[in-house]
Amino acid sequence: MEVQYPDHRRPFYLSVVVKDVQVRRALVDTGSCLNLIPLSTLQAANVPQQKIQGSPMEVTGFGGVTEYTMGHVQLVLRVRPIVALTRFHVVNAEAPYHVLLGRPWLHKHKFVSSTYHQCVKGRLNGKPICIAANSSPFDQTEAHFVEATLYDDLSSTGDPPIVKPCGTPLPDWEDIKDDPEVDLRELLE
């Protein structure tokens, strides 16, 4: 019998708790050498900006875009059975994730992530654990995110995301496909 795995093309989001606030989109990114948290997520979790310490640091994101962090903050992060104080670098930028968990978080807990299997695996108290990805990190009000198209199920709007949706809503293809005047680059600017 063949085992069915989740769609491995999906971004790998975990459901986590940051300072007693449920967060549906914690992106696991093995390419990141930092754990990041947008300022909007900190505000939604009622973390005062005075808690941000250290000096700004230059970070380069996807596509070579460079920006500066506001500093870092230590927060209690719960990912299913794992509860630990975690350092996040704070960015004042819009992002499709609410928290980004990079290699520091994975290495601290000796986890191995698998985007193919959509889970992280490791050991807790000598016993193997497997933490599965959140299968519905977006709700109906966030269906405009490009990432949301990779998910079959959207969560009910009764479960609000930690922050308000952000992004560029795009028109339906049927509405613009025959219009020679439409340039999608203009819509994104």
Rank of each mutant, 00 (worst) to 15 (best):
V47M: 06
T30Y: 04
N35P: 11
Q53C: 15
P56T: 08
Q50R: 09
S40E: 04
P56W: 03
A44Y: 00
Q50Y: 03
L27N: 01
S32K: 07
G31E: 09
S32E: 07
S55N: 14
P56G: 06
L27E: 00
D29F: 11
T30C: 15
N35A: 12
P48S: 08
K51N: 10
P48F: 02
V47C: 12
N46E: 13
A45P: 01
L39Q: 04
G54L: 14
S32G: 13
T30F: 06
A45M: 10
G31K: 04
L27F: 11
P48E: 02
K51M: 14
I37M: 09
P38I: 05
N46S: 10
V28R: 07
P56S: 13
P48T: 00
P56L: 13
V47Y: 03
L39T: 01
T41G: 02
Q49K: 08
S40Q: 06
Q50C: 12
S55P: 06
K51P: 01
L34R: 03
L34V: 11
L34F: 14
L36I: 11
T30K: 07
P48W: 04
L36R: 00
L27Y: 08
Q50S: 13
A44M: 05
V28Q: 03
V28C: 13
N46H: 10
L34G: 03
N35Q: 09
T41Q: 02
V28A: 10
C33K: 12
N46D: 11
I52V: 14
V47H: 00
Q50D: 12
K51C: 14
L34W: 08
Q53R: 13
L27M: 09
D29W: 08
I37P: 03
G54W: 08
G31I: 09
L39A: 04
V28F: 05
T41K: 09
P56R: 09
P56Q: 07
I52A: 07
P48G: 02
S40F: 05
Q53W: 07
A45R: 00
N46I: 00
L42I: 03
Q43V: 07
A44L: 05
L42D: 00
L27V: 07
Q50W: 03
I37C: 11
Q43Y: 04
